[in-house]
Design a protein around this nucleic acid. Structure first.
Length: 696
DNA sequence: GCGATCAGTT
DNA sequence: CACAACTGATCGC
């Protein structure tokens, strides 16, 4: 919960995410996202009066945040005083002193924050320095490096101060499973249940807050069943979300709410009161998204925990974990870092103590730096697969080309874009066509060593005493505990909240909006209970024990699955690969490879991370090549252990390589050339000259 | 009756 | 037990 008071030292005439007390007198207001704890005072009479008197004071936020805010009539008075700024579009604003008429120009850049729809970070550049206010954020490891507007040329911008979401900035929250892992876990749990019969329904016990939308859209897209919610008017101009939610309760997936949710559930009723129309009682499971974290020295286990006969907890986090924050901060290396969130029982000083070592001022004071040519700019950490051919020249590059690329909008012209945006055409998500035409199926299993510590416990479930993830049926072949995943990431092009490869198209917020809801197909009340085509031909994984009691239909997601899950009909290795996870990079790589007639695939990847005393870690990726798939008839290399750098491995499996939130490509980054990829995969397969990977 | 604050809920 | 983020009760104007 934000404890930021609203003002930054460098730009004290600006108020962000706080609108009460002396924030009322600010020259400009900023709202990072539409959660109540960031909107204090935003509809108070004091602020209303200020707006009436000071006609030049505006609220700046993302177009989506504006849309969500204005959904509530309580904020309608803001209508003409909000200036939406497009994400990733540096925009100059003027802070006007109404008494003297003095003006101060500040360049504002909104960066996607990955916290909820419309959530952004604010980058301020002006005469008082460069300051980044993160708001609340969840960015995966490495995503900051792909934010072009945080860079000048090939280097990260010099950030004087950062105001940081420190919600989980404590080593005890060292790791939180990635968005993809969590999503896939939930998808498979839902699949295992709702495919049993039309009377099997799931209820997602979500809080009343924005942030679950990408879960809804992915579920709807995967199962062809819209998610039942209480309200959808806030999404009226967001067709990508709107077309996946419904107020029609005749669906198998519910995220509806009622003040006495739990009682409804106990009575085997959904909060919306939905009942079956043929007399057969509904079979309901509840899935409660909540944050699960894993300490530095613990191993990840399931992202799903069973908390009762028909209740589950699913890992879900709106905020970055400690290691994600660390990655973010140590990449940016600001001079100063200030926490926005102080957990109860902690003091500001405690959190600052954690942040300090990650700041530049700390490393500069502890290490004497030789700067023969004055102030050398830090070079950006370069990803393994990225080339940095001009690293040396970079040091002297005072005129980065990116500046030419950045379109700087002046105050006025920026606002025009909203009209375009509002009239932009809705791109309805299309069902995937001809899945059998997909390239060679490539799946990877990421196995996690069993976690002794489960940090996600809560005792608020009535059945909290139920053992946490304990397999009820023994895995048949493999004892590996796995996260169940499918390769669904592909083609989920929701511009806001869908899982998407970082290399995909840069988002256009405009596709989020349209002038009016098109036709009835979006808001209609048709029944979407019928199952998708995929499920009809079901190769449906047998997650269910043979017991008649289907309330124990799935032991837990860390029990081994007898069938791997893939949409691509890769039945060849059913029963071999217990669980699968495909990162978008691997998927992309696979597609590229397949294009180039490379007909083998990586079947399993085992990830180990070794924590070294200095706190640095090496990661070993154990890529097991499926011999059956190899064109070379090589089988002896199964289990070959490759030493890759942490960065590369993290990209592959550990760290949430793709995101639902759009991060533009790294400046200067290149997609590996297909021929190169093929070569790499061949090397991998044969086990030869692996070092070539590292040299690259 | 409204808003600020605190307590309670999930 | 903690956690986020909401809803509801209470108090003061």
């Amino acid at each position: 919960m934000s404890s930021f008071l609203g003002r930054m030292k460098e730009y004290p005439s600006i108020s962000i995410d706080r609108f009460d007390r002396d924030n009322v007198s600010a020259k400009a207001y900023f709202l990072s996202h539409c959660h109540k704890d960031h909107m204090k005072g935003l509809r108070a009479p004091l602020l209303k009066r200020r707006l009436a008197c000071s006609l030049k004071v505006y609220l700046y936020c993302s177009p989506v945040t504006k849309e969500l805010l204005l959904t509530s009539p309580k904020y309608a008075f803001w209508e003409n005083r909000i200036r939406p700024i497009e994400v990733d579009t540096p925009t100059q604003i003027s802070l006007v002193d109404e008494a003297t008429g003095e003006k101060e120009d500040v360049l504002i850049t909104l960066l996607p924050a990955g916290h909820c729809p419309g959530s952004v970070m604010f980058l301020f550049q002006g005469q008082n320095g460069t300051v980044l206010y993160t708001g609340d954020f969840r960015l995966a490891k490495g995503e900051v490096a792909r934010m072009e507007l945080l860079h000048s040329g090939n280097r990260v911008k010099e950030i004087d101060s950062i105001y940081l979401d420190t919600t989980f900035c404590d080593p005890k929250y060292f790791q939180i499973p990635s968005r993809e892992e969590c999503l896939y876990g939930i998808l498979e749990l839902v699949r295992s249940w709702i495919t049993l019969s039309p009377h099997h329904v799931v209820w997602l016990n979500c809080k009343a807050a924005y942030g679950y939308e990408y879960l809804f859209t992915n579920l709807s897209e995967e199962f062809g069943a819209k998610v039942h919610v209480n309200k959808l008017d806030m999404f009226k101009n967001m067709p990508e979300i709107l077309c996946h939610v419904t107020t029609n309760s005749r669906t198998q997936i519910h995220a509806c709410r009622h003040p006495s949710n739990e009682e409804f559930l106990r009575g085997n009723r959904l909060p919306c009161g939905m009942f079956s129309d043929d007399g057969v009682p509904l079979r309901i499971i509840s899935i409660k998204p909540s944050t699960m974290w894993f300490g530095e020295r613990t191993r990840k286990t399931s992202v799903i925990a069973r908390t009762g006969d028909s209740s589950y907890r699913a890992c879900f986090s709106f905020h970055s974990s400690y290691s994600e924050i660390k990655d973010f901060l140590s990449y940016i290396q600001p001079m100063n870092a200030y926490p926005n969130v102080i957990p109860v029982g902690k003091a500001v000083a405690d959190v600052e103590e954690i942040l300090k070592p990650l700041c530049r001022s700390f490393s500069e004071s502890s290490v004497i730096r030789y700067k023969p040519l004055g102030s050398l700019k830090r070079t950006r950490n370069v990803n393994l697969l990225e080339k940095d051919e001009d690293g040396i020249e970079d040091l002297f590059d005072d005129y980065p080309l990116t500046h030419l690329k950045q379109k700087i909008f002046r105050d006025n012209c920026c606002w025009k874009s909203e009209e375009n945006l509002l009239s932009a055409k809705c791109e309805h998500s299309k069902p995937r066509e001809n899945p059998s035409a997909s390239p060679v199926p490539v799946t990877t299993t990421v196995n996690f060593v069993e976690c002794e510590e489960s940090n996600g416990e809560e005792d608020d479930d009535e059945e909290a005493d139920a053992p946490l993830p304990v397999p009820e049926h023994k895995p048949s072949e493999s004892g590996a505990r796995s996260v169940v995943c499918t390769d669904l990431a592909e083609n989920k092009l929701d511009n806001c909240m869908h899982v998407k490869s970082a290399a995909d198209v840069v988002p256009k917020w405009s596709t989020f909006f349209k002038s009016a809801v098109e036709g009835d197909d979006v808001l209609d009340n048709e029944n979407h209970v019928e199952r998708s085509g995929d499920d009809k031909n079901s190769q449906s994984p047998k997650l269910i024990s043979d017991s008649d009691d289907d309330s124990t239909h799935i032991s837990s997601m860390n029990s081994s699955q007898s069938t791997h899950i893939s949409e691509q009909g890769s039945q060849g290795w059913d029963g071999q690969a217990d669980t699968v996870l495909v990162s978008s990079q691997e998927r992309r790589a696979a597609e590229m490879a397949s294009v180039h007639r490379s007909s083998f695939s990586i079947l399993e990847g085992d990830l180990h991370e070794e924590i070294l005393p200095e706190g640095q870690s090496t990661v070993k990726c154990n890529l097991i090549i499926d011999a059956k798939q190899l064109p070379f008839g090589v089988s002896k290399h199964q289990g070959e252990v490759l030493d890759l750098t942490k960065a590369e491995c993290a990209r592959k499996a550990d760290s949430q390589s793709s995101s639902d939130f759009e991060i533009p490509s790294s400046p200067g980054a290149e997609l590996p050339h297909p021929s190169k990829l093929q070569y790499l995969y061949q090397q991998l397969a044969t086990g030869d000259a692996i070092t070539a990977l590292q040299q690259d």
